[in-house]
Design a protein around this nucleic acid. Structure first.
Lengths: 356, 356
DNA sequence: TCCTCCTACGTCAACGTTGACGTAACCAGT
DNA sequence: ACTGGTTACGTCAACGTTGACGTAGGAGGA
């Protein structure tokens, strides 16, 4: 366990009585070394336990590749991010590339720091989940020529590939699904409005309402919910309204969890419909099972990795904005019908005076 | 977005009309540069958008640090592994260190490959969740002098730090908890027996039985369950026995999920007790809530990171085997009592002939 | 005044590797 | 025997940076 110096090509060369260049040729499997010499070098490398130094090699080589990919997500411990990282890793491994991972925590300063951390290590490219708000740091990095692919959220600047899911269309689909069951009071619960996905999902919600002729009730829209607790209290507050919602559309997985918890506490989980964006483990084991819009996370990751590797290998074609479809997974919570009409179609109180 | 060459110290030096060495001094904040020159160099670096090349720097520097840590887990998309990675990452960031992450998939060959992938990149150290079986590759790497800390599972060789949880003690506690409620037929469901944690948890199970005077029924022990599906069918099979268990101890999170699913399918989830090792998201939202032994994953990660950084900075003290306690989280499933005795104390069929 | 010490630089080589290029030996063809 | 080509090596310098060491100029003391 002592701190021996790692053997170098020079050591191998000395032992095999050849030049370092010849060792280089043998190690890299290049032609120009006779079979006998190849064997001598291999033997020497084995006895010394030689392993090449990739950093020295990439410094010298003309292609400058470090065989390392930067992956900047929001929070590596979030199941969505973890699955994404894993998908990228798997694809990277096929190219003998390793991933340098970081969590930006949706913090622009932290993202900028991580970006330079990756840059000074000369990664071959970056897969980035952009933080909300300005993308100046990303754009600057991109303009320096760093290959980059944005995942989950598209760039606000040009010339850069991205992979996203069908946020708007799928959200609209969810609202239509609920409306189709007769729901007329569908609440929207979303996370930080600075995040593009949130906005898209909200737009999809609006489109869904518009498509079915429902009017937007702004008191049923709650955004900027950071984490499950905020989502839970926002949900609870909805049921203090005179006319509470009969269905919820939750636009992010942590928000879904918080809303579920609140519904359960109010013992409404079998009476109020719920559709969430993003699948999560055990969603099918809850009672009722949680109907969700499931993103194909492995596909997102694979596609992102594919795009970045194409760029790294010199692809100069115009930027791609890949869209991976999400699917509605019906498990029960989204199929709860509205309660038999007490309010709606609601008698106009001016014409038919309400009793009691 | 063109592929400009990154500016180097030489470029900065030329623009600031100083030597590269002076640029080096300014960039690294070393003394030996006058205030006026410092300003000139800073200005030049800014206008050129210079960023140091960490690989070149670490190649040349005497300490040889790459400011990069290797983290080899089993599956980055598993919530446990993801949380662990995140904890290590957070701690690493405090030292301006980035993590190179990989999934070994409990495959010795893959682990060996990843190990050399990290080694040729000259990471400063490695945090490894060892695959089951032989640890030759790890030991060899360790013997070369690479700083290493094992997480979740200890080394089978000497001289290496590790961080684990109280697998055996907590498993015993779970069995005692169940036995305390009157359970006498407690099944054990575990994953791959090559994995150390599985063995430890099984040993804890045995100790729990022994402590309470229960006899081991081998037909209630099912191991080598890979994934939720295998666990589910093994669980179902238990209830085909003449004398099925009244309680289950599931020794891994995916096994717990599979067992839950099977119990639910058999509509036994409110009648058969269940305690699982490893907490998982939403365990409290199920019905009943799932009683688990919760590992303190952030603490595991923090401790592992702490140990590895100590070693990297030259700590030569004898190896540490840190143990982070797990806690029993009671949520309902582990508190289900056994059914009012129909079988047990069971009449001996030879003396009291069974009817029908 | 001279010597010493310090500061603020510069020069040079080296980290481990590989691209560019050189060269000796050998072979085929004439 | 000579040319031209190929094979199997070697030599050299460079990738971007920094450690070791040199040196010019000024400050300070005897």
């Amino acid at each position: 366990m002592d701190q021996r110096r790692e053997p170098t090509m020079r050591d191998v060369a000395a032992l095999a009585r050849v030049s370092t260049k010849t060792v280089s040729r043998v190690i890299n499997g290049l032609p120009g070394a006779g079979p006998e010499v190849v064997e001598r070098v291999r033997e020497a490398a084995r006895t010394l336990g030689y392993r090449p130094n990739l950093t020295a090699s990439s410094l010298r080589r003309s292609d400058r590749r470090s065989a390392t990919l930067g992956v900047l997500l929001e929070d590596l411990s979030n199941p969505f991010d973890a699955a994404l990282l894993r998908a990228v890793e798997d694809r990277a491994r096929q190219n003998d590339v390793l991933v340098l991972a970081g969590s930006s925590e949706d913090d622009a300063v932290l993202q900028r720091e991580l970006l330079t951390s990756l840059a000074i290590r000369r990664v071959d490219g970056m897969v980035v989940m952009a933080v909300g708000g300005h993308q100046d740091a990303l754009q600057q990095e991109r303009e320096r020529g760093t290959p980059m692919v944005l995942v989950d959220r598209p760039p606000t600047f040009g010339g850069t590939d991205s992979v996203t899911t069908t946020n708007r269309d799928s959200s609209r689909e969810a609202v239509l699904h609920l409306a189709g069951l007769g729901h007329r009071h569908i609440a929207f619960l979303g996370d930080r409005q600075t995040v593009w996905t949130s906005q898209e999902r909200y737009t999809g919600y609006l489109e869904g309402l518009a498509r079915t002729g429902l009017t937007l009730r702004e008191d049923l829209v709650r955004t900027d919910l950071r984490g499950p607790d905020a989502a839970a209290s926002a949900t609870a507050a909805l049921f203090d309204l005179d006319e509470p919602p009969t269905a919820l559309f939750t636009a992010q997985n942590l928000v879904t969890v918080g809303a579920m918890r609140a519904l359960r506490d109010l013992d409404l989980h079998h009476r109020v419909a719920l559709i969430g964006f993003d699948d999560f483990p055990l969603a099918d084991m809850l009672e009722p099972g949680v109907t969700v819009l499931r993103q194909d996370v492995p596909a997102l990751g694979r596609k992102a990795a594919e795009l970045i590797f194409n760029r790294i290998t010199g692809d100069q074609s115009p930027p791609t904005h890949a869209v991976v479809p999400a699917t509605l997974v019906q498990r029960g919570s989204g199929e709860i019908p509205p309660p038999p009409d007490q309010h709606s179609p609601r008698p106009d109180p001016r014409r038919t005076p309400a009793r009691s």
